[in-house]
Design a protein around this nucleic acid. Structure first.
Lengths: 203, 203
DNA sequence: TACCGAAATTTCGGCAACGAAATATCAGCG
DNA sequence: CGCTGATATTTCGTTGCCGAAATTTCGGTA
């Protein structure tokens, strides 16, 4: 694909990540720029969206994590167990408790012990909760749409498909290091750098 | 590798996100599955890599955020100012101070007031720091390589390119809500769900 | 019925990140 | 030279998240 059938690489506009990867080149030449670039961009984008959510949602008296919790709950139809939320929101169990407690105090949801299985708790969105969620919803979605909107529908599909394949690999247990060990690997050292929680505020 | 690029949609293996998006469908039908899918997957992948970094790096006596800091420093050739690190790692200024202090105590870096501009501080990687970074490096890169390795080089390039276009949009100030406003938007509500970064903790 | 391992949720202790304000220094200008 | 606004970094106080342990309940088995 070095074929350069279309536009020369140099002509394309560069984003922050291009510069970032370039700075790394001399330090770790064996690093694959596309692996590095893709991973870094995903991190930055995730971060960026998080920040937007934080700000946009603030106008409705919510914090990002509060909105996310309500959102996760709404996604389950307004009813869920802490365990389901824990999975959807990708949190430690202890964190779920904290979030639910705060939201319950604000009257956005109710927790009731499940009669069916008394280890469980049923979490349910209240009318106030659904309303708060609803109002903040558009703001959040608008940014995702604005960003992903620069791609054609076909390209979005393509992006999503590529990512699915990567994620399927991620969902597999990982083959235990041992093997190649330190030496070989050669892999692109994970830029860890900006990635990680640091990630995304733009520019 | 991975030759089977095409295959009926129905035949393709499903990842966690497929189920997630599917659950959302009835709640927000106007949501674009590909926007939602892509965003969710990026978030999950970022999260996953963070987790791997956390674990892998632990074998070398480092925590994710410590490694990331050393990594960012190494990426600048071993010398940088707190401000540069703040930008690369995308942290609040206060967080940088905390990280540097901890790493300095461990002898992985040194901070010295810049003689040139006395507001500044020069941060420099020590030999011990570079060594710790170096040893943990392979572990981290291996996972990125494993995951992105399921794509062909051309596909990786494609992924990186698609993301660059999205990020370029993100790097632009955002067009101030007001405009189209509420109505349209319809966009895919930010699944907020698992997205959002918790912030890493130690091993 | 009594017991045992597994599962769901909460409590506890500690840590890192953040926002805001403080401190020190620089650069420009009358 | 001394004032003013901007920049770099640190300090302070708060908060959410996490890991581990505790608690309660379930499901199966003798």
């Amino acid at each position: 694909m070095t074929r350069a059938t279309h536009r020369a690489v140099a002509d394309r506009p560069r984003d922050w990540t291009d510069g970032h990867v370039e700075r790394w080149r001399p330090v770790l030449p064996q690093l694959d720029p596309d692996v590095e670039g893709a991973v870094t961009r995903m991190s930055k984008l995730t971060r960026h969206l998080g920040r937007v959510r934080e700000q946009g949602v603030a106008d409705y008296g919510l914090q990002k994590h509060e909105f996310d919790t309500l959102h996760g709950l709404a996604g389950r139809g307004g009813r869920a167990t802490p365990s389901e939320l824990r999975a959807d929101l990708n949190l430690a169990p202890a964190s779920v408790t904290g979030r639910l407690e705060a939201l319950e105090r604000r009257g956005f949801l109710v927790r009731t012990p499940s009669s069916d299985d008394r280890r469980r708790v049923d979490v349910e969105l209240t009318e106030a909760g659904r309303l708060a969620w609803r109002k903040a919803l558009d703001v959040v979605g608008r940014e995702e749409q604005r960003l992903l909107g620069v791609l054609t529908p076909a390209e979005r599909r393509q992006l999503s498909d590529l990512l699915r394949r990567v994620l399927l690999a991620a969902e597999q247990p990982a083959p235990e290091a041992g093997a190649g060990d330190g030496a070989g690997a050669g892999a692109g050292a994970g830029t860890g750098a900006d990635r990680q929680e640091a990630g995304g505020r733009h520019a």
